[in-house]
Write a protein that binds this DNA or RNA. Structure first.
Lengths: 216, 216
DNA sequence: TGCCATATGACAAGATCATGTCATTGGATT
DNA sequence: AATCCAATGACATGATCTTGTCATATGGCA
């Protein structure tokens, strides 16, 4: 098996040197490119062999790291890109995840974990730093909630959930009743129960709570 | 650095033996426990030293793998658990992610990727098989879409957004007007514009769309 | 200067909603 | 067997919402 070719895009010289050393001393890994800004690395693509993995700092001068990520993705789609970041900001992590990075490491982690991430990324996997993973799982929790895969449902009965679901589609009572094959009175009564259980007293309040807390 | 202690919980004997061999021949890893069912492994926790990493098959006889995952999590919270699965089913992956596993590998992957995942997990990270990672990123895409990370605000004016925001709190028009220091007529007119721009015709529809698409 | 969007305000009619009260049925629990 | 609760249905009243139509003032833009 050939060595894994790695490029490192990182503006902090001290950190970069340390990482290059760690990478080159690892078995099966060779750091064949070192750049202090994304623009330089993007130019280098044109005139040299492309790497298997790119370690990309997102706190770069000039081109924004996430923009750079997308640029690399377009130019060398087969390349696995691992984000290096000092940000533990869910929003930034989220953007990186959505841009399709193969890994997300915090700079506070050990160089050993970087080496492992490179191996994993070269293998096509995706690696996350513990802290990042926790954030991501947190997002999943929210995702789960907004997708209604159980959770605290405030003791709503199945039928009440049906009604709430239709409410959250923006339907009026008459429509809800028709769809669920019940009378408008029954629908009204279910809504009444929903309000009690959700501690709201308007249709908008119920819908807002339902969607925000993943009841529908 | 001590060896990484790994337990393997896997019912298929052939696959288990192969994996034990791969793990033990890897530098810095020792497979100190082999079990064909989760119950046995859970009992073993009581009378032996606990592992750093558990490789857990989710297609086990007896106790369900995801139930086992939660049981391990409760008993040895510091232990990193990597899921082994043949399922490429988004729903199962999703449940595993939400149960807080540290890795999600497909059995179709190489034993090399298992070794990497163990290293990464011992380091506190989370590793995903390529196929799994793609699914996860797919879920994120959906998440992003259903949360409409800004962008399209349907041309709502600032004031209309104010009104919409209050609507999404479950307030009635009278309350919204009071808070925004406008008459109920004005609030009504803003709502009218909101309905036009959002292409809805009920308050619940507007609130649902606003929340789901991240307008508020 | 004239036009347009935004923000404001108003009135009215009819639809819809919120809530109090009541009743029947069937399944589950005790 | 008695009880509880979810689900169903009903009626009435007052509050709230939706929509059509109209009007004024302001600031930006052509």
């Amino acid at each position: 098996m050939n060595d894994i070719e790695v490029w490192l895009v990182e503006d902090n010289e001290v950190y970069r040197r340390g990482l290059v050393k760690a990478l080159d001393s690892a078995i099966g890994i060779h750091c064949s490119g070192k750049f202090d800004r994304a623009e330089t690395a993007l130019e280098a693509i044109l005139r040299s062999s492309t790497p298997d993995v790119i370690l990309l700092d997102v706190g770069l001068p000039g081109m924004d790291g996430l923009t750079a990520l997308e640029a690399f993705r377009r130019r060398i789609p087969d390349c696995n890109i691992v984000i290096l970041t000092v940000f533990n900001d869910p929003d930034k992590i989220f953007k990186a995840v959505c841009s399709g990075a193969n890994g997300y490491l915090l700079k506070t982690g050990s160089s050993c974990s970087v080496v492992n991430a490179v191996r994993q990324a070269a293998d096509g996997g995706a690696t996350m730093d513990t802290a990042v993973a926790q954030r991501v799982l947190g997002l999943f929790d929210r995702f789960e909630k907004t997708n209604g895969a159980q959770g605290d449902d405030y003791g709503l009965s199945p039928r009440e959930k049906d009604v709430l679901e239709q409410m959250a589609k923006g339907l009026v009572i008459k429509e809800i009743a028709y769809i669920l094959h019940i009378s408008t009175h029954t629908a009204t009564n279910h809504i009444r129960s929903i309000y009690n259980k959700l501690h709201v007293n308007t249709n908008t309040g119920a819908v807002a709570k339902a969607i925000r807390e993943g009841l529908v």
